[in-house]
Design a binder for these strands. Structure first.
Lengths: 144, 144
DNA sequence: CGACTTTAGACAGAGAATCTGACCATCGTC
DNA sequence: GACGATGGTCAGATTCTCTGTCTAAAGTCG
């Protein structure tokens, strides 16, 4: 198969490569109880906490699913649920110190992989890629 | 959150948008019994048939999972399993006429979405994106 | 204020997707 | 022809995800 795949699939390949690398590195660093699905939600928790509904929306899963994954992250000590001062119904999912450590480890690998990509592509192309993707996000991400 | 996400996540967003659009269009066109997981495998079946093991490898799932999904695609009439003339152990997964019809419908939407992207980005940027992704594939896709 | 609608989240149960482990048949090699 | 590697299946367990239903707290409008 020497046919060039669609842009869609071409986008997916490096994304998956990144995801795989990050998850492997996390496991290596002792965070070996995080699953891919959990990481996809975890990744979206902001520094000041994020509501479950927002997490669900951004990860494009139902709030039940998001809740299920947050339960696990909570049991593993990566996040905790707290009240939302601005809304009595809502609860904020916040990152614990263990969660921060994991995030830091993840960020390190992300930087490493991005550096590899930049080395392969050249910094001009890498910069253009980043910029193009940001523009593309405008029409492909409803939560931009 | 106005922070620019990582390139990894930026790659994912348009990919998912494409995937969602294609699946919705397929459902619209009467192919409403295909799930996302099935489509991800289906997408990789070549015109001359593909072995289960190859499908599994490319989709990065176990051969059991690939087999499970192919079972469903077969039951729904999108593919059929046949012998592999070159290897008695192997069986080739081939696309049926119904499968081809679905593929054609999918290709149509892909072209449509890519046209939207090109309109938004401009043809120069779109071309550069495609080229950059092909290069990036060299170091991120073990099956390139 | 008080009734109505919406929103945030949880609980329960079912279904889909994925994995590990064990197994058989065929291929390639020596 | 024996032996390790490869392609595929079967069985069972786990993980992920969804639909449906429910409660509590906002928000809206008379």
């Amino acid at each position: 198969m020497t046919t060039t795949p669609t842009v869609g699939l071409l986008l997916f390949l490096p994304y998956r490569a990144m995801e795989t690398r990050v998850l492997a590195a996390l496991a290596e660093a002792g965070f070996d109880d995080v699953t891919l699905a959990q990481a996809r939600v975890f990744q979206r928790i902001g520094p000041n906490g994020t509501r479950l509904t927002d997490l669900a929306e951004q990860a494009q899963v139902t709030k039940q699913t998001a809740g299920f994954l947050v339960d696990q992250l909570e049991r593993a000590g990566y996040v905790r649920r707290g009240p939302d001062p601005e809304d009595g119904r809502a609860r904020l999912v916040r990152i614990t110190s263990r969660g921060s450590a994991a995030q830091a480890a993840a960020a390190e690998v992300v930087a490493e992989v991005e550096a590899e990509w930049e080395k392969h592509l050249g910094s001009r192309r890498m910069g253009a890629l980043r910029e193009t993707l940001v523009r593309l996000r405008e029409i492909t991400d409803p939560y931009a």
